[in-house]
Design a protein around this nucleic acid. Structure first.
Lengths: 122, 122
DNA sequence: GACTTTCTCAACCAGGCGGTTGACAATGCC
DNA sequence: GGCATTGTCAACCGCCTGGTTGAGAAAGTC
């Protein structure tokens, strides 16, 4: 499997968990340590440490390696990959939808015209 | 848990699987039946049927209910939800990055100025 | 009504995931 | 060195997931 594919696998999987999305949301405001991140949750520090590792493996987050107190920092790059993927297909879908809409519009016009003709003939 | 949260859970989880992302990519081009979708994969029809169900539960896909031959159709709406979520935090992260960059820039300028003064004094 | 085609449902299995607890590694401070 | 703080590693557990096979439901065709 190609590298981008695996990166998307990990990134989407990482954001599928609400706790991890919440971590991302908080990290968007400011860097934080695992301890600070863990504080508000009713969950062990180890659990949060694991969540952070998942985000890190997905490339969504980086950490300064000043071990003991290793602040976590949000990294925008992979997010870009994800939106690029999503937007591509969303736009195709919407384009197709617009074309279908236009087609239905034309069919309705034809229908109107038929009725007009009928009316004219009557 | 609120409804949007669960929707994002399901949507991100759905797209975490490469087979499902591939289905989405193909459906962006044209609607298709489960049989047509299953054809290219080395996998049972039932497996694909399950994958489609996951996409459907995530709201990424809808199906005309003319049971037996029930074409699958890509739905753009939830994709919008996802990009909105991602882009919000990506932009915050980039904004923070720019500010940090500017700060580092100013610090470097100060450093230059100090050197200039030293030079002037010498 | 019988048969074909298309798809889903149910049961099962291996493996991964999200959480726990307990031990311990690594740095900072006295 | 000794100790506190901060974080990770390892083993374990229950559950969900992605796949399989086999059976059956639902509509179209003869």
């Amino acid at each position: 499997m190609d590298e981008t594919t695996e990166q998307l696998n990990r990134a989407f999987a990482a954001l599928a968990d609400p706790t991890r999305r919440n971590l991302v949301a908080r990290l968007a405001g400011a860097d934080a340590t695992v301890g600070e991140l863990a504080e508000p949750y009713d969950m062990s520090l180890q659990a949060i440490s694991k969540h952070v590792k998942v985000l890190e493996d997905a490339g969504l987050v980086t950490r300064s390696k000043e071990a003991q107190r290793r602040p976590v920092h949000l990294d925008a790059e992979v997010f870009g990959l994800m939106t690029k993927w999503i937007e591509r297909y969303r736009q195709e879908a919407e384009e197709r939808y617009r074309r279908l809409d236009a087609l239905l519009g034309r069919m309705a016009d034809d229908e109107d015209q038929k009725q007009t003709h009928t009316k004219d003939a009557s």
